[in-house]
C-alpha cells in the first residue's frame, strides 16, 4: 500500500503510521533498527529496493530523505509504503522542499523507532565528514559507498581522514568473501609466514585497495596492487611463501575462483560478485564500530604500493 501526503509535517506522518498499524496490523514493533537513506532522483528506488531486500534479514523502518531542488516552494511532501510494497520494512519517503531542506534531522527525529539503533546510508555521495553531518551524528552506523563516486580513490582517502568509530563503506563488505578465502588458505599446513602479497584487480575500485590494505596491516608484509585492465573488481591474489605459495584467480566476468598451490590439485569454488543488498545486509548485522575496517582504512591504506 502506498499513501502520498502533500505539504505535510513529520508528526502528521508519524500519526499516520500509528493509524496504519491499528487498522491493518502493519506493525513496526518487531523492527530492530531505523535505516535512514539519503539519496536523490533515480537512485532512490534502487536504494529502497536494496533496503527492502536487506529488511528480510533486518526488519527495519526505512526513512528516505530526498531533498528537492532549490526553486521549489518550501514544505514537505511524503510517501508511506507498507505491506507488499515495502518488503519486511515500512518505508517513509520524505521530500523536503525549499528551506525545509536545511534541517533534515528535525524531519527524521519524530519518525525514529524508540530505542532502536539508527543507521544512515549514503548510496552515492557521502558528506565530507559523515560523523559531523547532522544525520550522521545521530547514528550508530554511517555507511558510505565511495565505489559509486566519480573519484572513488580520492574519496576513500577522504574517509580515512575523517574516520570516526561507526563509519563503514560498502566497498569493505565487497571484500569479505575474498578475505574469508584468504584467511582459510592460511588455516592449512604448511604454516609459513607470507613474505609478499600481490593483489590483482581494478586500480579504480576502492574494494581492491581495502583488500590490499587489510592484507598489508595483518600480514606485515609488502603488498602491491597490480592493475588488471578491464577488471571491475578484485580478480586475483598471490601469497608468496618460502615453499608453498598460493595463488587465486577469478577472471573478470567469471563467478569461479581457482586456487593454485604447489603440491595440491587445483581447487575451484563458486564466488560470484555480491549484489548490493547482500553487502548492506552484512553491514547491518553488527552495529558496533568495525575495528578491523578502521585499522585497514587508517593504517593499512598508506602501506599499499601500486605497481
Amino acid at each position: 500500500m502506498i499513501i502520498s501526503l502533500e505539504n505535510t509535517t513529520s508528526s502528521a506522518i508519524g500519526a499516520k503510521l500509528v493509524e496504519l498499524r491499528e487498522e491493518g496490523g502493519a506493525v513496526a514493533l518487531g523492527r530492530v533498527l531505523t535505516l535512514v537513506i539519503v539519496a536523490t532522483g533515480d537512485s532512490v528506488e534502487a536504494a529502497v529496493a536494496a533496503a527492502n531486500d536487506a529488511s528480510r534479514e533486518h526488519p527495519c523502518r526505512v526513512i528516505v530523505v530526498d531533498p528537492g531542488d532549490d526553486g521549489d516552494s518550501a514544505g514537505l511532501d511524503a510517501e508511506i509504503r507498507v505491506g507488499g510494497d515495502a518488503g519486511a520494512s515500512d518505508v517513509v519517503l520524505l521530500r523536503p522542499l525549499g528551506d525545509a531542506r536545511h534541517t533534515v534531522d528535525t524531519l527524521v527525529v519524530p519518525l525514529l523507532l524508540p530505542d532502536a539503533p539508527i543507521v544512515v546510508w549514503w548510496p552515492h555521495d557521502p558528506p565530507e565528514n559523515m560523523s559531523a553531518d547532522p544525520l550522521g551524528a545521530m547514528a550508530q552506523r554511517r555507511i558510505s559507498d565511495v565505489g559509486t563516486c566519480d573519484t572513488p580513490i580520492e574519496e576513500l582517502a577522504g574517509l580515512a581522514d575523517t574516520y570516526a568509530p561507526g563509519d563503514t563503506d560498502l566497498s569493505w563488505a565487497r571484500t569479505t568473501l575474498w578475505r574469508g578465502l584468504a584467511a582459510a588458505s592460511l588455516d592449512e599446513p604448511p604454516f609459513e609466514p607470507v613474505r609478499s602479497v600481490r593483489v590483482l584487480g581494478s586500480q579504480d575500485r576502492p574494494s581492491t585497495h581495502l583488500f590490499a590494505a587489510w592484507l598489508a596491516s595483518s600480514l606485515k608484509a609488502p603488498v602491491t596492487i597490480e592493475h588488471d585492465p578491464g577488471a571491475t573488481a578484485i580478480t586475483g591474489l598471490d601469497l608468496e611463501r618460502r615453499t608453498s605459495s598460493i595463488s587465486m584467480r577469478r577472471p573478470e566476468g567469471s563467478a569461479v575462483v581457482t586456487v593454485t598451490q604447489a603440491g595440491r590439485p587445483d581447487q575451484q569454488i563458486a564466488m560470484a560478485k555480491r549484489p548490493i543488498a547482500d553487502c548492506l545486509m552484512e553491514d547491518l548485522r553488527r552495529l558496533d564500530p568495525d575495528e578491523v575496517y578502521a585499522r585497514t582504512l587508517v593504517k593499512g591504506l598508506p602501506k599499499v604500493a601500486a605497481e
Binding site: T176, G180, A183, A184, E188, V194, L215, S218, R286, V292
Partner: peptide, 28 residues
Amino acid sequence: MAPAKVTNGQNPLRDPSDRRLPKIAGPS
C-alpha cells in the same frame, strides 16, 4: 619488518574482532 607469524592455530588474517569473516570449514 618481519612478516607476521603463521602457525597452527595462529593465523594473522583471523582477528577475533573481525566478525565479518565467515568460519569456513577446512579441506574435508
